Simulated scan of single mutants.
Amino acid sequence: MTSPDGHDLATRRRDARWVVRHLKFLADNYVDQALVMEALFRGLSQSEVAKLLGMSKKTVNTHARMPFMRNAALKDSRVDDLMRNDREFFAYVWGSDKAANSAVARCKQYDRERLLVESNRGV
């Protein structure tokens, strides 16, 4: 087996850092949003959720008011590979595929029940 050249090492480091940024994005957005929505469904106030999850009230409010959906992915040839691994990441965070799917389903329920009601108030 030959040792990798300097360019290969730099590429591997860049790829590893890109994967870490992607996972941090998932954690900071999708996981946090799902946790906020679940806590609100359980009857906690936004202030209580902020304290419980160690977030600012502004962040909790942002997650509570934003529909749960995937954002557009960066243009990169590897993005499809990363997105295939998202399911494994969510299963790890929630403990199983079933629990991860339930969390996403609760977010969609939150969107239907809470965000729809909120959007109809001003009409």
Rank of each mutant, 00 (worst) to 15 (best):
L40N: 09
F41I: 05
R42S: 09
G43A: 02
G43F: 06
L44T: 04
L44S: 09
S45E: 06
S45L: 05
S45K: 14
Q46M: 11
S47Y: 08
S47W: 05
S47G: 11
E48D: 14
E48Q: 15
E48T: 07
V49Q: 09
A50W: 05
K51Y: 07
L53Y: 03
L53D: 01
G54C: 04
G54S: 03
M55D: 00
M55E: 00
S56N: 04
K57S: 06
K58L: 02
K58Y: 03
K58T: 09
K58P: 00
T59Q: 14
T59F: 00
V60H: 07
V60W: 03
N61T: 10
T62W: 08
H63L: 00
H63Q: 02
A64G: 07
R65L: 09
R65A: 12
R65N: 10
R65V: 01
M66E: 14
P67L: 02
P67C: 01
F68L: 14
F68K: 03
F68H: 09
F68G: 01
M69Q: 15
R70P: 04
N71W: 01
N71H: 06
A72I: 11
A72G: 05
A73N: 11
L74Y: 04
L74S: 11
L74R: 13
K75P: 08
K75M: 13
D76A: 13
D76R: 11
S77W: 04
R78S: 12
R78N: 14
D80L: 10
D81A: 12
D81F: 06
D81E: 12
L82V: 05
M83G: 01
R84H: 10
D86G: 00
R87C: 01
R87P: 00
E88P: 00
F89P: 04
F90M: 15
A91V: 10
Y92W: 14
Y92T: 14
V93S: 05
V93F: 10
W94A: 03
W94L: 03
W94H: 02
W94C: 05
W94Q: 02
G95Y: 06
G95I: 07
S96C: 03
S96I: 06
D97L: 07
K98M: 10
